[in-house]
């Protein structure tokens, strides 16, 4: 082999290699996809994402790996996903938390590590309305009684949340604003479970928790549901009014969404959202949603983008209402 043919051969190989990626793009996905769950195993995000991953596996004929990257209220996972290569092989399963980090960082004069612009919404997998719950030993039977007492005794009623500026804290701020009551006293805990425990033990008198997280305790009579933050009454609690019915402008869901990092090619986003639409129609996905006590609340990429926009605005406003506490 002389030098010339070697050169031609090399050039040809190089061209073929260079052409490689564009070819691979046409057949996305050509290898494993990783869905990062920003919360620990066993939580709603984890439980809901896993069956979806299994369905995507069947559709794509590629492995879809679920990896838990928990920490700092979901910020660790969001940050890792935001910095991942936007090639459609790393996706993120997150919840409401993803909306608020930037606003909280602003509050503390920190440079936001991730903003909403870092993510492309793919689908809303679940949306569980939040309930206004009180310990059954408390005298309140209606929202009105609760509001009256809260007005009479400012900062006396204690409510528990899973964490500051979290998805069980913000609805209380929204509720306070909608009803015009003075601020309630906040008992932050480290997670949804401990917040419910604090309410059950009457160490807090009120808490806003999702239908699925509280259903067993409401049925056992230890907690009382006064109202729902959903747009319509929950089928699990047909007697509990919505806050909207009562004339208060408050709506809040704990949702689970799938995101891709910013810069993911449009074609791949389309492939993914089409596959997710298909997965959302499967029996496996629907039965998991039903079994954990939620209603079917899937939204495709377009609807979810609009929902997220509005929801994030409300969340930013709630963060501002809470402000800095120390």
């Amino acid at each position: 082999m002389d030098r010339r043919s070697f050169f031609i051969g090399t050039a040809a190989t190089a061209t073929a290699l260079a052409a490689g990626p564009s070819f691979a793009q046409e057949t996305y996905p050509s290898r494993n996809i990783t869905i990062m769950v920003a919360f620990p195993p066993g939580g709603a995000n984890d439980i809901i994402t896993r069956p979806v991953a299994a369905e995507l596996e069947k559709i794509f004929k590629q492995s879809v790996v679920v990896e838990n990257k928990a920490g700092a209220g979901g910020q660790v996972g969001a940050q890792v996903a935001a910095n991942a290569k936007p090639d459609g092989y790393t996706l993120l399963s997150h919840n409401n938390g993803i909306s608020g980090y930037a606003e909280v960082d602003k509050l503390f004069d920190r440079k936001p590590k991730t903003t909403r612009e870092d993510f492309v919404p793919l689908a809303r997998l679940a949306a569980d309305p939040v309930m206004l719950l009180v310990n059954a030993e408390q005298p309140y039977k209606t929202v009105k009684e609760f509001i009256d007492d809260a007005k009479k005794r400012p900062e006396a009623i204690v409510y528990s949340s899973g964490g500051l500026y979290g998805a069980t804290h913000l609805p209380v701020a929204i509720f306070e604003k909608a009803t015009g009551i003075p601020k309630l006293r906040h008992l932050p805990t480290n997670g949804g479970g401990p917040a419910v425990t604090a309410l059950l033990g009457n160490n807090a008198q009120m808490s806003t928790q999702t239908v699925s997280a509280s259903l067993a305790h409401v049925r056992s009579g230890k907690l009382r549901a006064l109202a729902t933050f959903g747009a319509t009454r929950s089928p699990a609690h047909p007697d509990v009014p919505t806050l909207k019915e009562l004339g208060f402008d408050a709506e809040y869901y704990l949702w689970v969404g799938l995101f891709a990092p910013k810069g993911t090619p449009a074609a791949i986003v389309q492939t993914l959202s089409a596959a997710l639409d298909k997965a959302s129609q499967t029996e496996a996905y629907k039965s998991v949603i039903e079994k954990i006590g939620q209603e079917y609340a899937y939204q495709n990429a377009k609807d979810f983008a609009a929902f997220w926009e509005a929801d994030a605005k409300a969340s930013d406003e709630a963060v501002k209402l809470i402000g800095r506490v120390g």
């Binding site: 503390f108 800095r324 506490v325 120390g326």
Partner: peptide, 9 residues
């Protein structure tokens, strides 16, 4: 770590 009561890192 994060101060659970105030949100400071």
């Amino acid at each position: 770590g994060i101060d659970n009561m105030t949100g400071h890192f």
